[in-house]
């Protein structure tokens, strides 16, 4: 219960930051401190890096998205950021609230490759989320800089996501003897990977560059969320703790 309350405290602070301006920034920063503090608490409580279950992964992901504030405020008007960025931090944190807490690991998770997989997975998804924020700001403001920020963040996200897949395949092969399986989960991960590759290339085509490519990039967000959280309950893929 205390865990959920703590999450609700920083979610509320992020919510209040939507007011914008200096007050909004103060609320956002306070939320960020609470958020970071809670992740640190989880690390000490568990005794290992808190990336072994969906609950912690989503909180780390939303924290990385929140930290991008420091990068974005150098490039984008503060009120534009506070209009959208906290919403995505709240969405990811709320997804965490609905995940069961396990507080245990499996012997198979005791591998460097497992942690490589999950750390890059968190970073990749965080980059994709922030790129979505930049894309939405472009659709509202039409400045070419926002489009370039979206592209660059997506590219970095895609590279990190690819590294996560390399780590994950290596871990899975060493543990189970296969590096890829024909399951709905794997097929959706492949869809997500190809989708962002599609976006990165679509930008080079004159008929798609600008607004159409930005929209393609923004649509990537629901795809990655579904590939991570939707496949198991909706399509009936085998259950996974992380």
């Amino acid at each position: 219960m205390a865990n959920i309350l703590t999450i609700l405290v920083f979610i509320s602070l992020y919510g209040l930051s939507l007011l914008g301006g200096k007050k909004g920034t103060v609320y956002f920063m306070t939320g960020l401190i609470f958020h970071g503090g809670y992740i640190l608490y989880r690390s000490f409580h568990l005794g290992w890096l808190p990336v072994t279950e969906k609950y912690d992964i989503l909180l780390s992901m939303s924290f990385c998205v929140a930290v991008s504030f420091f990068y974005l405020k150098k490039k984008i008007d503060l009120n534009q950021i506070l209009d959208i960025l906290p919403l995505f931090v709240i969405i990811l944190s709320l997804f965490a609230v609905f995940q069961p807490r396990m507080d245990t690991t499996e012997p198979s998770m005791d591998s460097v490759w497992f942690f490589v997989h999950l750390i890059f997975h968190i970073l990749g998804y965080a980059f994709f989320t922030v790129s979505t924020v930049a894309g939405i700001i472009y659709l509202r403001k039409k400045s070419v800089v926002y489009e370039m920020i979206q592209y660059r963040l997506t590219l970095f996200g895609w590279l990190l996501f690819s590294l996560s897949l390399i780590g994950g395949s290596t871990w899975f092969f060493l543990t189970y003897g296969s590096y890829w399986l024909w399951t709905a989960k794997e097929l959706w991960i492949t869809i997500a990977w190809f989708y962002y590759s599609f976006y990165l290339h679509s930008r080079m085509k004159s008929s798609l560059s600008g607004r159409p490519a930005v929209i393609i990039g923004v649509i990537g967000f629901p795809i990655i969320i579904f590939s991570y959280l939707g496949v198991m309950p909706i399509l009936g893929s085998p259950w996974s703790q992380f």
Binding site: W182, A184, L187, W188, Y195, F198, H201, K205, L235, G236
Partner: peptide
């Protein structure tokens, strides 16, 4: 490339619903 990956994603999508 865009057409081929677009069709490929569509088939992966069909498979993700068909296999389970």
């Amino acid at each position: 490339y865009l057409w081929v990956t677009g069709i490929g994603m569509g088939i992966f999508l069909i498979g993700s619903f068909y296999i389970p």
